Simulated assay, not measured.
Amino acid sequence: MTDVSRLPGAAHHSWQWQSRAACRDLGSGRFFHPAGERGEDREERDAAAKRVCAACPVRAACLEHALRTRETFGVWGGLTEEERRALLAPAESALASRP
């Protein structure tokens, strides 16, 4: 489950970027894998989602949101959940090793 404590709250300006997203009217099925999807099917769906993200005017804001809130599922800002975890791992490891 997403950790909502990191969400910026209800301030409209914090969410305004979503209204300009290329995915706005495409439905979530393109960006979130169904249960049990593996292999080539998942790779093809992820690739299709990433093509949408590649042309998106708010890709950076979307990715920043996903990283800040630790979105655990789906393609956000052109990265899969595995790719986002790999980006966050070094920072989380450094925090965990602090005294």
Rank of each mutant, 00 (worst) to 15 (best):
S28I: 08
G36R: 07
A55Q: 09
A35G: 07
S19T: 13
R24L: 15
D41I: 03
R85W: 09
R30H: 01
F73L: 11
A10Y: 10
V4M: 11
T72C: 04
L63D: 02
A48S: 13
S97R: 15
L7S: 15
A86T: 03
E82S: 09
R24A: 14
S14C: 12
E64I: 00
M1K: 12
D41T: 11
T72I: 05
A89W: 04
A91D: 13
L7R: 12
G36P: 10
W76K: 06
F32Q: 08
R30M: 13
Q16L: 14
A49H: 01
G74Y: 04
D25W: 13
A94Q: 14
R70F: 12
P8I: 13
E81M: 01
S5R: 14
H13I: 11
A61Q: 14
A21H: 08
C53I: 03
S5W: 08
D46E: 15
C56V: 05
A48K: 14
L7G: 09
V4I: 10
R85T: 02
G29Q: 11
A55P: 00
F31E: 03
A21N: 07
A66T: 04
T80M: 03
P57I: 09
F32E: 08
P8F: 10
E71G: 02
G78Q: 06
F31C: 04
W76H: 11
L87D: 00
L95V: 05
E82R: 13
Q16T: 06
A55M: 03
G36T: 09
V58L: 06
L7Y: 12
G36E: 10
R59M: 03
A35S: 12
G27E: 08
A91V: 07
L87C: 08
L88C: 06
H13Q: 15
H13E: 15
E83R: 07
W15K: 08
S5G: 14
E40I: 06
R59V: 02
K50T: 02
C62G: 02
A11R: 14
R85V: 01
S19A: 15
R84E: 02
W17E: 04
R84G: 03
H33V: 05
F32P: 01
G77N: 08
E81C: 03
G39C: 06
P90I: 12
H33A: 15
T2H: 04
E64A: 14
V75D: 02
A49G: 09
T72H: 02
V52N: 00
V75Q: 05
A35N: 08
C56I: 03
A55R: 07
L63K: 01
A91K: 07
R30Y: 00
A86K: 10
Q18I: 05
L79V: 02
L67E: 09
L63V: 03
R38W: 05
S14A: 15
V52D: 01
R42P: 02
P99C: 06
D25E: 12
G74M: 03
C56T: 04
S97T: 14
A49N: 01
C56R: 01
R70W: 09
R24N: 10
A49S: 06
R45C: 07
R24S: 11
D41C: 04
A66L: 05
L26Y: 05
V58N: 01
T72E: 12
L87G: 00
T72S: 12
